[in-house]
């Protein structure tokens, strides 16, 4: 603050050096001898600029978005996924076929202008059924990830922040849920509550929130020892305020990354259940039921299996690329 006479001080020092050199070497004089102190003025307050910051200010999210957009693979995944989502939402609207409209005159037809991906054994248009399947698969993926996130953040956050005995008890509950194979729950719930989307969501969510809870807990355990959480306590912030406004906002990176890996997991589970036969029931379609329906004719009409499998692959690939990209973008330590 007070040391900002730098510019003119420097000049002053330079002159001093040249003066002493003149004296030492005893060469010709009167170069700078008439310089006196009153030629120098301290820098005016308004001219001082020592606290200036040159770098452009960026928020954490803006910074992460910039890094994410530079990641080609992640951006490709993002574009493909957006296309899949848009197609799933708007595709069926513009098609004159419906997911359950049967046409006995053209069963098991191949690709044509009328039916882009051909028809199945009842003459239903496979492309439209794929889009309807995408609606269900993506909805299961996103909704269950959302529920997992809410439950996992609340549970893991509270467990990690309280610590001690409460944490011990809450984590043992998590261990118990974790110890029982999740497919067991899911199949039992499907049998008890019937084959519909609601019971699939309940089945997936009842066990998979624990991994989010664990991640959030370990992040909170780490963050709560940092000084800014003590600082928040000292200025009088309540426990809830510290946890939700200070700690969780800093755990956002790992939470978002876990989330993007949870979506493909849920899509996978749903597809598997439908394939095994306990998922969505006919005439509704998900990608899993499409594969299941076509399985019997795999030798004769292999393409009927290939389309839904391809849809699953492309979606999960793009989700994984997005997840990788986000984890790079949100973790500044990986910044090159």
């Amino acid at each position: 603050m007070e040391m900002d006479m730098k510019m003119r001080m420097n000049t002053n020092a330079g002159v001093n050096v040249s003066m002493s050199m003149n004296m030492n070497m005893d060469t010709n004089v009167d170069v700078n001898m008439n310089i006196s102190d009153d030629l120098f003025l301290p820098l005016d307050e308004s001219e001082k600029d020592s606290e200036f910051i040159a770098i452009e200010s960026r928020s954490f999210i803006a910074d992460a978005a910039r890094r994410f957009s530079r990641n080609k693979l992640a951006m490709a995944g993002f574009i493909v996924l957006s296309a899949v989502v848009l197609l799933a939402i708007f595709g069926p609207v513009f098609s004159h076929y419906t997911f359950d409209g049967q046409d006995p005159s053209s069963r098991n037809s191949g690709s044509s202008l009328a039916h882009w991906f051909g028809t199945d054994k009842f003459g239903r248009d496979i492309f439209v059924r794929l889009l309807y399947g995408a609606r269900i698969s993506l909805m299961v993926g996103f909704v269950s990830a959302g529920i997992n996130m809410a439950v996992g953040i609340a549970y893991g956050g509270i467990s990690g922040y309280l610590g001690g005995k409460a944490d011990m008890l809450m984590m043992r509950v998590v261990d118990i849920i974790y110890a029982i194979p999740s497919l067991l729950y899911v199949i039992l719930i499907m049998l008890a509550l019937g084959s519909n989307i609601r019971s699939i969501l309940i089945g997936i969510c009842i066990s998979s929130w624990v991994s989010m809870a664990r991640i959030v807990r370990s992040e909170i355990l780490k963050l709560k020892t940092l000084e800014f959480s003590t600082a928040a306590f000292v200025i009088g912030a309540s426990k809830a305020r510290i946890l939700f406004r200070h700690l969780l906002i800093n755990a956002l990176g790992p939470i978002i990354v876990t989330l993007t890996f949870m979506i493909p997991q849920a899509i996978f589970t749903e597809a598997f259940l439908s394939f095994v036969g306990v998922g969505i029931s006919a005439p509704f379609a998900s990608w899993g039921t499409l594969v299941q329906d076509a399985r019997a004719f795999i030798d004769i009409y292999p393409m009927q299996v290939v389309y839904p499998v391809l849809a699953i692959c492309v979606t999960i690939f793009s989700l994984n690329f997005i997840g990788d990209g986000l984890s790079d973008a949100l973790n500044p330590k990986s910044r090159r």
């Binding site: 000084e227 800014f228 600082a231 200025i235 800093n250």
Partner: peptide, 18 residues
């Protein structure tokens, strides 16, 4: 709490980065 405050050792850890 309002009347008693604290200045921390590590200026890198004591400010919420977000």
């Amino acid at each position: 709490r309002r009347r008693m405050q604290m200045i921390f050792q590590d200026p890198y850890a004591s400010l919420n980065p977000r």
